[in-house]
Amino acid sequence: MRVIVWLDEGTWPACVDAARAHAPAASEVVLLHVSGPGVAGLAHGAFAGLLGRAGSEPDPEGRLVELGRASAAELLDAAEARLGRACTRLERAGRVEREVVAAAEGADLLILARDGDRSRLGPHSLGKAVRFAVDHAPCPVLLVWPEGAPDLTTMPPPPPHHH
């Protein structure tokens, strides 16, 4: 059994705990971190656009990419320690939700955490990236609440019925 655990900065501990609870001992656990095109690319774009030319200042993109890699490595280190068993580490870069779906190809389970409004039950508890991954995953999905599910009283009332 191959279990992919999508690690996101804010919610990874709950995903690792779910893998500890639900991945059979003999399964291969893959800790997945995806770096989006985000900050480094934005910094480069902003820098390149500064006065329409690059001056003598060093372009910040390289440093931000380096910091992103260090941060991803630290997150993977922490996740591996929390998992407490042998695992595979997988780092990908690109459109996060698409990279997660691609990484889940051939997997037996994808574990991910809700990334939206976690104060109440309902569809808004899934942000765009997690919604995309849940909708497109080529394998079963285990969707976890990062800090425990909200009370059932937070569920929206049913719509009124019209006759």
Rank of each mutant, 00 (worst) to 15 (best):
M1T: 10
M1D: 07
M1N: 06
L7M: 04
L7V: 05
D8L: 07
G10P: 05
W12N: 03
A18D: 04
A21I: 02
A21W: 03
P24F: 11
P24N: 12
A26L: 08
E28C: 05
L32V: 13
A40T: 03
G41F: 01
L42S: 05
G49M: 04
L50Y: 13
L51N: 07
G52T: 03
G52D: 01
R53D: 03
R53P: 00
A54L: 07
A54C: 08
P58K: 10
D59F: 10
D59T: 06
E61Q: 15
E61G: 04
R63E: 10
L64A: 02
V65T: 06
E66L: 14
G68N: 08
A70P: 00
A72I: 08
A72F: 05
A73R: 14
E74F: 02
L75R: 08
L75Q: 11
L76A: 11
A79W: 09
E80W: 03
C87Y: 10
C87D: 07
T88A: 14
R89W: 00
R89I: 01
L90D: 02
E91H: 09
G94T: 15
E97P: 00
R98V: 09
V100T: 07
V100Q: 06
V100F: 10
V101Q: 11
V101T: 14
V101C: 12
A103G: 14
A103E: 07
E105C: 07
G106K: 11
A107T: 10
D108Y: 04
L109G: 00
L109N: 00
L112R: 01
A113P: 04
R114V: 05
D115H: 08
G116R: 04
R120A: 15
L121D: 00
L121V: 06
P123E: 14
P123N: 11
S125R: 03
V130H: 07
F132V: 05
F132M: 14
D135G: 14
D135E: 15
H136G: 09
A137K: 06
C139S: 07
C139G: 01
P140A: 15
P140R: 15
L142E: 04
L142C: 02
V144G: 12
W145H: 10
P146R: 14
P146W: 08
P146D: 08
G148D: 03
A149Q: 13
P150Y: 12
L152H: 13
L152Y: 12
P160R: 14
P160G: 13
P160H: 14
H163T: 05
H163A: 11
H163M: 02
